[in-house]
Structures are given as structure tokens and as C-alpha cells.
């Protein structure tokens, strides 16, 4: 398969800060690709450059064969975007928002009508199409934005935090639409997210970014396997880390939230030995690793929900969006 997105040394610097640092990445057609990272890692800036809204300081990228710096017009015709903040007009109806989009993309009238019917059905908004967007719930609004991003059948769809601020039910629904799209329309989807479960569920491959660079890139399954074992989380009054480290099957020891997390090969069969060694234990938890562990491992930062919701307030997310 050919790479539909080919990023070459993409860099963005602001005065003394390098936000995106010589990024190199190829994304295949039909992939759902996740871009993860803590706040300020450069995800949104990368997206803004790829969507031609911000010029790179150096380097470039090819999208659908077009250079983002030389043929932004062709790139724009090849892509669709669902932005992080609401981008539909509240005072227009759902239908009018879609119609406007079709006009902006110069779609002929008959095709426009057909596509609107099509996408409204896909996101289940047909019966609400004539309501003002003001009267939509957060989830409906997000679905409308997704529908709009798809209307012109882009080769690549960018989703910036698609489920930010949605309730679990709406998220689940939106995930199903995204999966359906990738399958039925062979669309390439690039998404940024703060939710590890979302990335795990949707992405074929994902990259974790930190300080403008890709730290690691692989399938979610492989990333978890790379950690080299299960997670044992211990809380005990006396912990002798040196002796734990000496055990051959303990791969890694790291503090987590005042407790101790061990990465242990085949934890269920070694648990007894570990517990004997530690002695008195307040609590113990054994689990298979999740993407959260992977994230913590590579960035040294845990993702908390409070961070994820920062975008709706004047928290750190706003800073990132303004980069």
C-alpha cells in the first residue's frame, strides 16, 4: 500500500520554542492512526500544519500526493477535519450547516442533496436536520461535525479530540461511526485523543508524541506487549526496592501515585514469591497492561481526566491550541 500521508522533517518553531521537531511519519491508506501525547506535545500544531492552516517552519508533508506548502488548495480538497472546538454555526440548522459546507467545497446541487441525505443517515440526525444547532446536545453536535467533515468524501479525515467532553454513550456511538467509515469508505483517519481506551479501541497504529517528537510508534497490541509483562501494583509499609529489582522476572519498578508499580513477566505465577518477599501488604492489584501504562512508560506522565477536559476551560489545552 502507498502512503497517503508522508511527513518529512516537519518542524514548527516559535521564537525559542520548538513545538514540532523534525517529524517523520508515513500513514497508509485506510488506516486509523492515533496521535497521542501530553498537553503541549505538538499534536494540534501538527494537525494544523497538515491541514494547511499553519505554515511549517521547515520540512513538509505530502497528503494524497500533494505538498502542503506548495499545493495547499489541492491538499484542502483531499481532506476533511473535525476540529477540537465546536465549529458549526449554532444559529443555522443542521441541514443549513451541511449545505454551507457543500457550497464552500463547490459541490454541484444534485450531489449536495444526495450527500447530505447520506451523511445525515450515517450519523442518525435525519429527523433533527431542521432544528437549529443551538438545540442539539453535545453529542449530536459532534456527530453533525463528523457528518460535515465527510460530506465531500475526503481521502483523509482529521479528528482532533473527537469525543472530548462527551458522555460515555455518545462516545461509544461516535466510535462506531468512525469504524464504519474506515471500513466502508476506505477513508484514512488521523485522530488525536487524550483517551487511551479510545485509541486502543479505534487505532490500527498509534504514535506517542512528547516535546514535538514521536517517542514510539506501533500497534496498540504491540505497544502493550513491549512493556514486557503484567502490572503489579503494591501498597506496603516496608518496601525493599533493591531486593525486588533483583528478581529475574521483575522488568521494571516505578512509583505510581505513592504506590509501587512493578512490571512482572507472567505475574500470576510469581505473585506468591513477590508477596513473600515484601511481607506485610496493604493492598495488591494485578492486571494486564493498558495503553495508560504504555503512555506512562514513554512520557513519564499519567493522563488524567482533568487534563483531558482542559480544552473546555482556560486550562493548559488552550495554550496548546494557540501554539
Amino acid at each position: 500500500m502507498a502512503a497517503i500521508i508522508d511527513i518529512k522533517d516537519l518542524t514548527k518553531t516559535y521564537e525559542d520554542r520548538t513545538v514540532v521537531d523534525h517529524l517523520n511519519l508515513q500513514i497508509e491508506e485506510g488506516e486509523i492512526f492515533g496521535l497521542l501525547g501530553p498537553n503541549g506535545a505538538g499534536k494540534t500544531t501538527t494537525l494544523l500544519m497538515l491541514t494547511t492552516l499553519k505554515p511549517p517552519t521547515s520540512g513538509t508533508a505530502l497528503i494524497n500526493g500533494f505538498d502542503i506548502t506548495k499545493r495547499p488548495d489541492k491538499v484542502r480538497k483531499s481532506i476533511g477535519i473535525v476540529f477540537q472546538e465546536p465549529s458549526t454555526d449554532e444559529i443555522l440548522t443542521g441541514y443549513e450547516n451541511l449545505k454551507l459546507h457543500g457550497w464552500l467545497y463547490d459541490m454541484p446541487d444534485h450531489l449536495l442533496k444526495e450527500r447530505i441525505t447520506d451523511v445525515l443517515q450515517l450519523v442518525n440526525l435525519t429527523d433533527r436536520k431542521d432544528d437549529l444547532v443551538k438545540r442539539y446536545s453535545g453529542g449530536m453536535r459532534r456527530r453533525l461535525e463528523l457528518a460535515r467533515g465527510l460530506m465531500h468524501h475526503p481521502k483523509v479525515l482529521f479528528l482532533d479530540e473527537p469525543t472530548l467532553g462527551l458522555d460515555p454513550q455518545s462516545r461509544e456511538g461516535l466510535w462506531r461511526y468512525i469504524e464504519k467509515l474506515a471500513q466502508e469508505k476506505n477513508m484514512t483517519i488521523i485522530l488525536t485523543t487524550h483517551y487511551m481506551d479510545e485509541a486502543d479501541r479505534l487505532c490500527n497504529r498509534l504514535a506517542i508524541m512528547d516535546k514535538g517528537k514521536i517517542v514510539v510508534l506501533d500497534t496498540p497490541k504491540q505497544l502493550k506487549a513491549n512493556l514486557g509483562g503484567d502490572i503489579v501494583r503494591l501498597k506496603a509499609p516496608h518496601l525493599d526496592q533493591e531486593r525486588l529489582k533483583a528478581l529475574p522476572y521483575v522488568k521494571k519498578i516505578s512509583p505510581c501515585d505513592g504506590e509501587l508499580c512493578l512490571t512482572v513477566e507472567n505475574a500470576s505465577s510469581h505473585l506468591q514469591e513477590i508477596l513473600t518477599l515484601v511481607g506485610k501488604v496493604d493492598s495488591v492489584e494485578v492486571r494486564i497492561p493498558t495503553l495508560d501504562d504504555v503512555f506512562l512508560h514513554y512520557t513519564g506522565k499519567a493522563l488524567k481526566n482533568s487534563d483531558a477536559q482542559g480544552g473546555w476551560t482556560s486550562g493548559p489545552m488552550t495554550g496548546e491550541a494557540n501554539e
Binding site: T51, T52, L53, I81, F83, P86, H101, L104
Partner: peptide, 13 residues
């Protein structure tokens, strides 16, 4: 302030 402007700016016009 909201992202409506981006929606317009990213359109091929």
C-alpha cells in the same frame, strides 16, 4: 474563538 473560522479557512477557496 470557536472553530468556525477554521472550517471556512480550510475550505478550498
Amino acid at each position: 474563538k470557536v472553530d468556525f473560522m477554521k472550517e471556512v479557512l480550510v475550505a478550498p477557496m
